[in-house]
Design a protein around this nucleic acid. Structure first.
Length: 936
RNA sequence: GCGGAUGUGGUGAAAUUGGUAGACACGCUAGACUUAGGAUCUAGUACCGUGAGGUGUGCGGGUUCGAGUCCCUCCAUCCGCACCA
């Protein structure tokens, strides 16, 4: 009987669904293993072959873990809040929820065809109120927390208030924007507004007027990582800077822990580096410079306090708040003009215009704290308002940008380095001896930095300081399709809504656009006020500012829901908590996480931040959400082209003369670069009468190029077509066979026949009669076949543990080829092989499993065949590798040989006579699987 | 510029700790069988050479009995960051 993948796959798909084969329960008697894929945003385009790549790998791995006896959590869900559904709603008026549901249904249909072992009873959707109830709850926890630097963790804001009431804030060591000190008496005298203003400076989520990336075209604020080269990540619209009142997350509080936590993670160095770079830690000192004619001081941050004697001017960012105050009358106009020009420049221009040095002197003078010299204060746009203090002390001899600036404006370059030439460029290495620097002279940088900081602190003009590039994350979006904030305003004071009244469900609106007076879309909602007596959302008409108050109009950004979804899978329907303590304690964090590397500074950073926060507050027992991560490479499309020449004829690739125009053609009409000419003619009316210049054999060969998959390039390969044509098991094996999982690669179906043949060959091993009954031998398996099997078991075990999914497929092919050559139809061997192969090809495995006389649907939970090296021992052939005082032999697959056995193998090795010179070895040193040293 | 990664046949790629480079598969060539198919089977297929043999893992060096693997210089490609004081 032929291998009928269609019937087999349909049968098992139904069986698994009907029997809930993959439902997982929290079973404390088994060790847990948590395998997670980054959940997808359900876009309207559906899945293409790139999406399942990671899902297949994670599915293969989870199935192996199941075979190894682990209780495996392998869930799937949808990150279902997002822009495209909202944009579609704006255009069509269709509710984003409807679009989202339709898209999810389509995704599910596609996913179901591939035979994943997801436990769909645990599905989560970030846009469902049952889910975002707990997103809102986490927001409330952040609102009610502050970061205590003394204990180095987040603590309850109530504890902070208690401290204020007892002793004010003088002794509080917190991550805060609070600058003024108050006593307990002063705190008690504050009114509600003043108190909240203070608390806002401590809360881990807070309202602030902040410079934000405002995208007029999208009508929203974007996070830094959603802006690429001054354009929005989505849509590529221009982004400008705007001052807005926004919710922010005090992620800065976690900068150091986010940095050190990376060390324990099994992530690629490149992702870790990207996060390290993003956090951007630099050690140095802050130094205050007094002004000659004003009381204010200018604070700068420097990583090189040792070069302070090289300072001969200061530079402020044009946006620095003191600029206008300190500028002398004669420079007022020039400074105003420079500021105007700087503000006109977009962030992008400022970045691309690195070479062009500009600046303006302000006329103000600062006093050098150690030499007492008067130094000029400039403004220049190479100094960024958003980093450090927005001001730098310029050391032209030690910093290339300062050198360039000084050189351009003809300023003095003081050399404070012994025997270093700074006439052509700054000397930026830290290995020079400091000179001309009073008490620092003669020291090396490291010692000088310490001594300089001591002196600065002794003088009371600054202190040693660590600076982070990481900025607090803006958390508001002026959009409809996102989580509403559980916040209402009493006379402008934000109040959160208690857990028992959550979720605050998105209100209905007529239009999904911002309101006419520029409010976010929720400003269109008629029923969007909070009744504090009845604790429910009521009509805006009832707002009286006594018991009924307006609700927050912003919604949360896309990363809110995805920052904690991995926790929800452990207990997805819990209405009393984000997940029960038992569930979280049992499943803990994700053991293996699969997804794209593009989330390095977004999702992966925020999820770590929230997890650390929940850890601090005692809600989860771990600090890092994703222990091991694999970043699957992007699958690129392989576009096909036809070429039209000046005469309007379509020229085959081998007949090109040059100058022909390439035109994308749908890849479904092209097979191995050969164009289906009839299909092409039928594709569009304009091609119906197309004339061709063909190859000599009468075929049309298309050109090709590797590009991102996109509808407009006609190069999208959906998994559905391939499942239809070759079956899900073939698709699964082929996607794994394609190459290393982490590598980006163009999609190409050229090799899929080979994988398809392999599964057919596997089927044929079972020697089925016309009724589909396997004709198998129950005699003792041959030595040969046992060897083949155990070689395979060993290789698969090793390869799976190092996530080498592609080599496993090759190993299976070799195994099947060998068994086929051996004409092996031994039941025992084939049963073990079936188990081994089931993670890759679950449908055919279940079918064969039943044919072997086992219960339906149980291969998933079978016991992984144990490797027995005994079957390989006869393979332990030693051969001499070299001779150098000691003789070395390579012993193949000799993992557990005793020295005696090795000795025997060595004596029997080809050519051993030549090396041993008739002597038996004195001593044999065995390192399993390695070269063996023989002492003669 | 800085940081990270990669570089192996016509193609996708193997080679886990330094130990027979190119497994496995695609493609191609020749053949067998045939109910003509995108089936199955056999042989061949890194390069040069008729051959013996020689050369080969981006280039050039080094360490080693032995290097695709380790070290140094350079080149190319990809990704990330980019006035970060």
């Amino acid at each position: 009987m032929e291998y009928n993948f269609k019937a087999i796959e349909e049968k098992w798909r139904k069986f698994w669904a009907d029997n809930q084969t993959y439902k997982v329960t929290n079973d404390p008697s088994k060790p847990k293993f948590y395998v997670l894929d980054m959940f997808p945003y359900p876009s309207g385009a559906g899945l293409h072959v790139g999406h399942p790549l990671g899902y297949i790998a994670s599915d293969v791995y989870s199935r192996y873990k199941k075979l190894q006896g682990f209780n495996v959590l392998h869930p799937m869900g949808y990150d279902s809040f997002g822009l495209p559904a909202e944009q579609y709603a704006i255009q069509t008026g269709q509710h984003p929820e409807k679009t989202t549901k339709e898209n999810i249904a389509r995704y599910r249909e596609q996913l179901d065809k591939i035979g994943f072992s997801f436990d769909w009873s645990r599905e989560v959707r970030t846009s469902s109120p049952e889910y975002y109830k707990w997103t809102q709850w986490i927001f409330n926890q952040l609102f009610d927390s502050w970061y205590n630097n003394n204990t180095d963790k987040a603590e309850a804001i109530a504890d902070l208030v208690a401290i204020f009431e007892k002793e004010g804030n003088a002794n509080v060591n917190a991550v805060t924007d609070q600058e003024t000190i108050f006593s307990a008496e002063e705190w008690k005298a504050f009114d509600d507004h003043q108190k909240e203003d203070v608390l806002q400076n401590y809360r881990l989520t807070y309202l602030a007027d902040s410079w934000v990336n405002w995208c007029p075209a999208l009508g929203t604020v974007l996070a830094n990582d959603e802006v690429i080269n001054g354009l929005s990540e989505r849509g590529g619209h221009p982004v400008e800077q705007k001052l807005m009142r926004q919710w922010s997350m005090r992620i800065k509080a976690y900068a150091e822990r986010l940095l050190t936590g990376l060390d324990g993670l099994e992530w690629t160095e490149s992702i870790k580096d990207i996060q390290r770079n993003w956090i951007g830690k630099s050690k140095g000192a802050s130094v205050k410079f007094a002004l000659k004619d004003a009381a204010e001081q200018i604070e700068v941050f420097t990583t090189r306090p040792d070069t302070i004697f090289g300072v001969n001017f200061l530079v402020l960012a044009p946006e620095h708040p003191l600029v206008d105050d300190i500028t002398t009358p004669e420079y007022k106009d020039a400074v105003a003009e420079y500021k105007r020009l700087a503000s006109l420049k977009s962030e992008r221009d400022r970045q691309s215009d690195v070479k062009n040095i500009t600046g303006q002197i302000t006329g103000a003078k600062a006093i050098h704290p150690f030499t007492g010299a008067e130094i000029d204060i400039w403004i220049a746009d190479y100094v960024l308002a958003s980093y450090g203090t927005g001001a730098v002390m310029a050391v032209p001899c030690g910093d290339q940008r300062d050198w360039d600036f000084a050189n351009h404006f003809g300023l003095e370059i003081i050399n404070i380095f012994q025997d270093k030439d700074v006439s052509e460029a700054a000397y930026t290495e830290k290995d020079a001896i400091i000179a001309n620097s009073d008490f620092l002279s003669g020291l090396e940088a490291k010692a000088a930095i310490e001594k300089a900081i001591e002196a600065i602190e002794a003088k009371g003009i600054g202190k040693g300081k660590t600076n982070y590039r990481l900025r607090d994350a803006v958390f508001s979006r002026q959009r409809y399709w996102g989580e509403p904030f559980p916040v209402y305003f009493v006379n402008g004071i934000p109040k959160t809504i208690a857990t028992e009244h959550l979720p605050i469900v998105l209100p209905e609106v007529e239009k999904y656009l911002p309101t006419e007076d520029g409010q976010p879309p929720l400003g269109n909602a008629a029923v969007w006020a909070w009744d504090t007596v009845n604790n429910k959302v009521v009509s805006n008409d009832l707002i009286d500012e006594k018991t009924v108050f307006p609700l927050e109009l912003n919604t949360m950004p896309g990363w809110a829901g995805s920052s904690w979804y991995f926790l929800r899978y452990t207990d997805p329907t819990n209405a009393e908590a984000f997940a029960s303590k038992e569930a979280v304690d049992y499943w803990k964090n994700v053991d293996l996480y699969l997804g794209g590397a593009e989330h390095a500074t977004g999702h992966l950073l925020y999820a770590r931040f929230w997890t650390k926060f929940l850890f601090d507050r005692g809600f989860v027992p771990f600090e890092e959400p994703f222990q091991k991560m694999i970043n699957q490479g992007m699958i690129l499309g392989r576009s096909s082209f036809v070429y039209r020449n000046a005469d309007g004829k379509y020229v085959s690739k081998g007949k090109l003369q040059g100058g022909e125009q390439p035109i994308h053609v749908d890849i479904s009409m092209v097979e191995n670069d050969k164009l289906d000419i009839e299909a092409f003619k039928a594709w569009r009316s304009e091609y119906a009468n197309a004339a061709f210049i063909l190859e000599d054999d009468g075929t049309y060969i298309c050109g090709h190029e590797v590009e991102k998959m996109s509808k407009s390039k006609y190069n999208v390969q959906t998994p559905d077509e391939l499942v239809e044509k070759f079956g899900a098991d073939t698709l699964r094996c082929y996607e794994m066979f394609l190459g290393p999982i982490e590598q980006a690669k163009p999609w190409d179906t050229k090799g899929i026949n080979g994988v398809s043949n392999f599964l057919r060959k596997l089927w044929r091993l079972f020697n089925m009669d016309e009724n589909g009954n396997a004709q198998l031998s129950t005699e003792a398996p041959s030595k040969e076949s046992l060897k083949t099997l155990h070689k395979t078991i060993k290789k698969i075990n090793d390869d799976i543990e190092r996530y080498s999914f592609n080599t496993c497929v090759s190993t299976f092919m070799i195994c099947v080829n060998e068994l086929s050559d051996q004409k092996c139809n031994n039941k025992e061997i084939l049963e073990q092989l079936t188990i081994l192969i089931s993670p890759y090809a679950p449908h055919i495995a279940e079918e064969l499993w039943v044919k072997l006389g086992n219960e339906a649907g149980t291969v998933t939970f079978a016991k992984l065949p144990a490797f027995n090296e005994e079957y390989l021992i006869e393979d332990a052939i030693a051969y001499p590798v070299s001779f150098n005082g000691k003789m070395r032999f390579k012993i193949e697959l000799a993992a557990t040989l005793t020295p005696k056995e090795v000795e025997e193998a060595v004596l029997n090795a080809p050519e051993s006579e030549k090396y041993l010179e008739g002597k038996a070895p004195k001593k044999v040193i065995v390192v399993p699987g390695k070269i063996v040293n023989i002492v003669l």
